[in-house]
Amino acid sequence: MADRSSVKKVTEAAAQAFGLTGGPPEKDGLIKLMNDLVELLSNADGLDIATINAVWKASRKLQSCVENDDLNPAVLADVYLILIGDEQKHTSPKSAAPPKPAPESKPEPEPQPGKPTDEVLEEEISAAPSRPADLAPQAADAKKTTPKLDEKIKVSTDRLDNLVNMVGELLIDGQMVRVGEEKYIIPINNIRRCFRPTEDQISTIHGQREMVLVRNELLPLARLHELFEVEPDSTNPCEGLVVIVEGDNEVCCMLVDDLLDQQRVVIKDLGPLLNQTEGVSGGAIMGDGMVRLILDIPGVIKLYRK
């Protein structure tokens, strides 16, 4: 059975594998790390949900890194920060042993509607521009893959995929939103912030695509009611709410009618007839017995781009 000490051990190994202790990122080390993470997930009885989620998230990112032979320092740093972020939640600030890249002095995270402060903090951590700069020149050297390594990668990724199939269900923190009579759940990890836009923030391109100006950044506006063909309360963005969502390194504004409560939900598989549905990653059974759909934000953005 895994416990906190196993997680700490893996996190320390990660620092070495990612080249944070001086050497270059080691592909062999990354594969070993991925195996360790899979091992943790397989024996996760002694771990709390937040840790399982962190390990899970790190494993998926690492899998994509190793599979694509992309030792991008920024991505590796992300994986490390996810792990270290979880580790720090469980230890006092003084005892945080691994060398977390020192961020520049940051302002207090701005409270965001519908988002708990610790989520904002986590987002700040993963979005911080404090990637270890010394990883960059070493990444290119580590890109050479040998057949033996390829085989190891395959075994690791197969194990992870099997685990995904076996587990089938995962817990997430979700923000429930309403569009007309329908309610959907957006994973909180995908939400940056939400607000009610003013008319001067909305601009149109060629009379079709709409953009929202948020803090000097123009973001596309996806109307969820149009994507999912449901009847909204209002089609005027200034009467609804805009949720800024992020997935697969893409950011998009999503128009909804209302924000409801936040809940921790179990993701349920929709079954073979429906699991290819675009923009939906699964369902959750709510307290009233109804099923609510959990949005797959990268899928919704892809749907919007179509």
Partner: peptide, 27 residues
């Protein structure tokens, strides 16, 4: 019972319901 609609599916799939702790499609 009330069925949760699933967007972007064919017309015969009416949506999903909760059945004994699982989510099942309704045709």
């Amino acid at each position: 019972q009330k069925i949760t609609k699933v967007p972007k599916t064919s017309r015969e799939i009416k949506g999903v319901i909760s059945f004994r702790g699982h989510v099942i499609p309704i045709v």
